[in-house]
Simulated assay, not measured.
Amino acid sequence: MGTSTETELRERWRRLAGTAAGTVGEELIGRYREPHRRYHTVDHLVAMLRVIDELAGEADDVDAVRYAAFFHDAIYAVDRADNEERSAVLAEEVLGKLCAAPELVAEVVRLVRLTATHDPSDDDRNGGVLCDADLAVLAADEQGYAAYTAAVRAEYGHVPDELFRAGRAAVLQGLAGQPKLFRTPLARTRFESAARDNLRRELAELTGRVAS
């Protein structure tokens, strides 16, 4: 049966892919329940899909974006740097077996690969929606952001604290250095300011510097 979150994901997958693809949906959802995951879980996936709903009008093909969300972290190992590529290959294989239109498959694969950088071009409306939904957690309230950072740290529990802090700071500095974190107008209005405040505070905690 699973949790209410998993029930929601099953229904979302059914609406997207049809009842005949139910087994595929179960397998995908199962991947997000793998025991080594602490942040990249079913909760992250459903939260991302809900943001995509809110940003749907900003996409050219919102169904492609939703498929990409389901696949974007389908393969996730903390000790590998090619998770996005492997997830993209999985999406290509699975959607091909489901006889999805070739142009849809190509777009989903492209979008999954894009989550490796979160740097879509200005005219990439689908990519903007997907990346904005993936990064929306950065704008969480104080309690939600604390839960997010704790979950990320738990996923990397095998990494010594000093190394983790340096690596995490580098990731956050890369994000903070972007001219805009969010690409769609709606997401920028809703998320940009809060996300930058959270990044600034976390970087100060990681580096021991006072947030400005």
Rank of each mutant, 00 (worst) to 15 (best):
G128N: 15
L111G: 05
G2W: 00
E93W: 15
L49E: 12
R183Y: 06
V109Q: 09
A194T: 09
D53R: 00
T207D: 02
P102V: 00
R201I: 05
T41D: 04
G167Y: 15
T117M: 06
A64Q: 01
S212C: 01
R66T: 09
A176N: 08
G177R: 05
V51L: 13
D63S: 01
E192M: 01
G96S: 10
D197P: 02
A166I: 04
R125P: 06
E142F: 03
A59W: 09
P102I: 04
A91C: 12
E103L: 06
A187C: 14
E8R: 15
L49K: 07
L206M: 00
R153L: 10
R15W: 10
A68H: 13
A150R: 14
I52T: 03
Y156F: 11
R33C: 14
A150Q: 15
L186R: 08
T7W: 13
R38K: 15
R50K: 13
L98V: 11
V112A: 01
T149K: 03
A187K: 04
G144W: 14
E85G: 10
V105W: 09
V129A: 08
V89Q: 14
Y148Q: 07
D134R: 04
G2F: 00
L28C: 00
L114K: 02
L104M: 09
T41A: 01
T149R: 13
D119C: 04
R200I: 01
A176R: 14
K97A: 13
H118G: 06
D82R: 05
L130I: 10
G144K: 11
L199K: 10
A56S: 15
A74D: 10
I52P: 13
D60M: 01
V78H: 11
L49V: 12
S87W: 06
A68K: 03
Q173N: 07
P120S: 07
V89Y: 05
A154W: 07
H72N: 12
G208T: 00
R113L: 08
E27A: 05
G2M: 00
F182W: 01
E202D: 14
D124T: 03
A20E: 15
Y39A: 03
R50N: 12
R66S: 07
R188Q: 12
D134M: 05
